[in-house]
């Protein structure tokens, strides 16, 4: 019998830290969503509508990810919800270490729902877990109905897709049927909502989904 010294990490660095984050959020009973989408898809607008509806019902906090500026965090702050801005200064996605550093300094004991708004990008964020329970993707109809098939990973990885800006559907070339069909081809059974942050369409459904998830997380 011989002993071989190994001392090797079992998981890649980001996955290991994402797992730590998951354990931390689970211990504190916080439900975490990783919100993704292209620049301009409407992620921050969705957050604003969410806060209007839910901030009196649920204890919420937001972690904002952008390359530069605190513009999004400022918008969130105006709603009176605790928010921390992460500036990646060039990085195209948030990663687990970034979120861990920030989350460790938040009051997680008094939190029901944490939404991490990722950097605007349909490619890289899907590859990097940050410790979330679920990923959510926002696609605005102005981006084109061909996007799901072009960016399959983000749709496969997300638990819910929100097709935003449907109030201007009459002015766009977006084929709603085929976009939804493509999304469900990539991810059978995925929840897809038509929403508009301008008119408020679909926001109730999204908020109900969130509330249900928060309740499920609290009940372990």
């Amino acid at each position: 019998m011989a002993e071989i010294q190994v001392m090797k990490n079992i998981l890649g660095e980001n996955d290991r830290i994402a797992a730590e984050n998951q354990a931390m959020f689970a211990a504190k009973g916080v439900y975490v969503v990783n919100l993704m989408g292209s620049p301009g898809a409407g992620k921050t607008s969705v957050l604003e509508k969410t806060m209007e509806k839910l901030k009196d019902e649920l204890k919420m906090a937001v972690i904002e990810g952008d390359l530069f500026t605190s513009k999004d965090a400022d918008r969130i702050e105006r709603h009176g919800v605790p928010v921390i801005q992460i500036n990646t200064a060039g990085g195209c996605h948030l990663d687990a270490p970034m979120v861990q550093k920030v989350a460790q300094q938040m009051d997680l004991d008094n939190l029901d729902l944490l939404i991490v708004e990722n950097v605007g990008n349909l490619v890289c964020p899907a590859e990097f877990a940050v410790g979330e329970d679920d990923k959510a993707v926002v696609l605005s109809i102005t981006e084109g109905d061909d996007k799901p098939l072009k960016y399959p990973l983000i749709f496969k990885e997300s638990a819910i897709a929100m097709l935003n800006k449907v109030d201007i559907l009459p002015y766009c070339n977006f084929n709603m049927e085929s976009a939804k069909e493509d999304i469900t081809t990539l991810h059978p059974g995925m929840k897809v909502l038509e929403i508009s942050c301008t008119t408020g369409q679909g926001i109730d459904e999204w908020c109900d989904w969130l509330k249900k998830k928060v309740a499920e997380k609290k009940n372990g």
Partner: peptide, 12 residues
């Protein structure tokens, strides 16, 4: 407290 490693193996 943050480790997740294989430390050693006992082999024949």
């Amino acid at each position: 407290g943050r480790e997740m490693k294989v430390e050693y193996l006992e082999v024949d």
